[in-house]
Simulated scan of single mutants.
Amino acid sequence: MTPRRLIPLLRQFDFARQRLTDRMTGPTVDSGNGSPVEVSPMTDEEHLWEPVPGCWSVRRRSQGPGPRASLLVGTGDWGRDGAPMPHPSPPPFTTIAWRLSHLTELLALRADHTAGNHTMTQDDHRASGVAAEAIRAFDASAAQWRKALLTADDNALDTFGYSTYPYGSDPDVPFIEIVWWTNQELLHHGAEIALMRDLYRAGHQ
């Protein structure tokens, strides 16, 4: 049985996940009041669009890191701009590709460190500069995270360190706070991606 206090968080996650996927793929997205708004699929050019100089993005490994980045995070032919702590200040503006890769990695790693092998690191994440591939990866990691949430009973929700995710506050707070925090990551990065899609459309008509 799903704990009662987890149910509204699952519903919020499901709505935000579907809305973001629809916002990136079309043909319509929920406007927020239930009415559909037409939207076109995100292109590779838009996915990698750098609206200001000095953006952090997802890049082919052969290109090397972008401005103020010292490494490309992940594995495979593409990597996400990054740097060891402390990060550059002020933070670089990040592309849709960067934000989507970050969100996808967070969901996949938290799923693994909740109900998987508890071994995945940022070095295992495979980013992509191809929009359709990046969206598929996001959907897969979101499904993995939701499946991991269903392993949590009431005791797990109150357990410190139920998730062993190594890049957050997971060891120090009850798991239900991690569930809430992951929802807000999805909500705020989803909103950022939606806004950047609007800006791109307005400038490329």
Rank of each mutant, 00 (worst) to 15 (best):
H188F: 13
N155C: 00
I96Q: 13
F175H: 10
G26A: 11
I178M: 04
Q184R: 09
S163G: 03
G203N: 13
L157W: 01
V52C: 00
S40G: 14
T25F: 05
R60K: 11
T21H: 11
E38H: 14
L109N: 11
R11A: 06
P65K: 11
L106Q: 07
T94I: 12
Q184V: 04
P171Y: 00
Q205K: 14
R110G: 06
G34M: 00
V39E: 11
G190I: 11
S70E: 15
R99H: 11
I96T: 09
D139G: 09
S128P: 05
V39M: 11
R5P: 01
L48R: 09
A194Y: 11
S89H: 02
R11P: 01
G34N: 06
L199V: 15
F175K: 05
D22S: 11
R201A: 14
A152S: 06
H87G: 11
G168I: 07
F138Y: 11
P8Y: 03
P67L: 13
L150C: 01
L186Q: 01
T2S: 00
D112G: 13
A131T: 05
P65H: 12
T94A: 15
A140C: 07
R68F: 09
Y165Q: 01
E46P: 03
D112L: 14
P174W: 15
G32K: 09
G34S: 08
A97S: 14
D154M: 04
Y165T: 06
I178N: 02
T119Y: 09
G190H: 10
D139P: 02
E177S: 13
G64T: 14
V130Q: 13
I135Q: 05
L48M: 03
T159N: 07
G74K: 10
S163D: 02
A191K: 09
P166T: 15
F175W: 07
S35W: 15
S163M: 03
A127F: 15
R99M: 15
A134G: 03
A148F: 02
T104M: 06
T21W: 06
D123M: 12
R110H: 10
F15K: 01
L48W: 05
L10C: 07
V52L: 02
L103W: 00
H113P: 02
A202W: 08
E133I: 06
R5E: 01
T164D: 02
H204V: 13
G32V: 10
S40L: 14
S128C: 08
V37G: 08
V29M: 08
A131I: 04
W98A: 13
F160Y: 14
L20S: 01
V37C: 10
G76M: 05
P53T: 13
I135W: 07
R17P: 04
W180A: 06
L48Y: 05
G168L: 01
E105H: 12
E46I: 03
D77F: 12
S35Q: 15
C55G: 10
Y165G: 05
P88K: 07
A127W: 14
E133W: 04
T104E: 10
M24L: 14
E45D: 05
N155F: 00
R23M: 12
Q122V: 14
P86F: 05
F93D: 14
D77V: 12
R61V: 10
